[in-house]
Design a protein around this nucleic acid. Sequence first.
DNA 1: CCTTATTTTTGAACACGTTCAAAAAGGAGG
DNA 2: CCTCCTTTTTGAACGTGTTCAAAAATAAGG
Lengths: 217, 217
Amino acid sequence: MPKKSDETRERIIDAALRLFRDKGFDETTMRDVAAEAGLATGAAYYYFHSKEELVMALYARTSDEAREIVPAAIAKSKDLKKRLRAVIDAKFEQFADHRRLLGALVRIGMDPKHSLSPFAKETEAMRLESIGHFAEALAGTKVPKDLEEFLPGLFWLYDLGLILFWIYDESPGQRKTRRLTDASLDIVVRLIQLSTLPLMGPLRKRTVALLNDLLTG
Amino acid sequence: MPKKSDETRERIIDAALRLFRDKGFDETTMRDVAAEAGLATGAAYYYFHSKEELVMALYARTSDEAREIVPAAIAKSKDLKKRLRAVIDAKFEQFADHRRLLGALVRIGMDPKHSLSPFAKETEAMRLESIGHFAEALAGTKVPKDLEEFLPGLFWLYDLGLILFWIYDESPGQRKTRRLTDASLDIVVRLIQLSTLPLMGPLRKRTVALLNDLLTG
DNA sequence: CCTTATTTTTGAACACGTTCAAAAAGGAGG
DNA sequence: CCTCCTTTTTGAACGTGTTCAAAAATAAGG
């Protein structure tokens, strides 16, 4: 029994994403979106509080999709780098059709107070799920105990950085992002391996202390 | 011979910064700014192309100021960490009164195509000057040859990250940012020292290769 | 069915960034 | 002082995100 209102909601999202993709976010007006969905201007605001929230609807959709796709992709390999790569690539592929659109989220996305920020309370569920994917990719890898609890979150942050780079990467086929991902992931994985060496002890301790400090208070 | 129009320009900037500081960026309208400067609404647009450009005017002012302040602050010590800290602290102090205001720049600041982005062609002069300050702080420090040319730019990026954190840091007196700066700078400096070890050779080579790759093509 | 409460839809109105044609002010040359 | 040109100022108008009171559609109870 799909409620009528849910249908309308979906119709608005579809209309919006279609227009955003074809004309761009800034060039699409809320009047356009409502008209495309066969509604009056104000109707869209009954379902979404803002224009950006329509972009967040896309984000939420991909989050649902990821729940199915990502675990399977991770399980294909036992190699850490490949497992992490699977998580990262899944996101890229999901957003591929809407790369530029995400720029609209970036505009507000830095402010943790804003409800649509990736750091906001309101987006915590999606955030934890993404972090969980990285935790799953890391499962079974030998890692210094004290660093262990922070790694999934750090990888999530790292992925966020890659996506940010990607959004503004205008090289053909975004091949710069591909190269950045390849090389940086290699470096990061090596760093983790090196971090077990006694020589790295002090550095690791300081890093862990900093993370603890920032996250607790 | 201060031209009349230059005076008006300054009057508008002063009015804007005063209002931005007292009421906030979003809460201040261009009509407010023009009125405060004793002008009609449209006049401000004769001098500035957008509301954000007024914030950039602040940025430009501090950039001029930094040219005087920073070199002196650096020269006070021969210790790398202290020298870097001087550059970083100078920026924090300069922006102290307008911390929240910079959030307005962040909203557009990620898009390298946008003329007000820290990565844009239009802001290259200011960017190179900031990078130069870090180069000066690094002068005289023993550093792996292949890494040398990239370090100033990397520190500039690192500083940008600290400032981003600071903008949204609502802890009392922004003490979290203080702690992040202390600890992360310590870590970074240690990393640079460690990077000379033979063990770190491969890691360093890969990092340098990545940077070369991204910057050239 | 009719009445009443709830959900959904409407379209006008508002605020604000921005644009622009026209007016005013300023300046240079005579 | 007048003329012509440039710089500056004006304020109305436009577009767009958003709000809101009122209307319409829907649901619930009798």
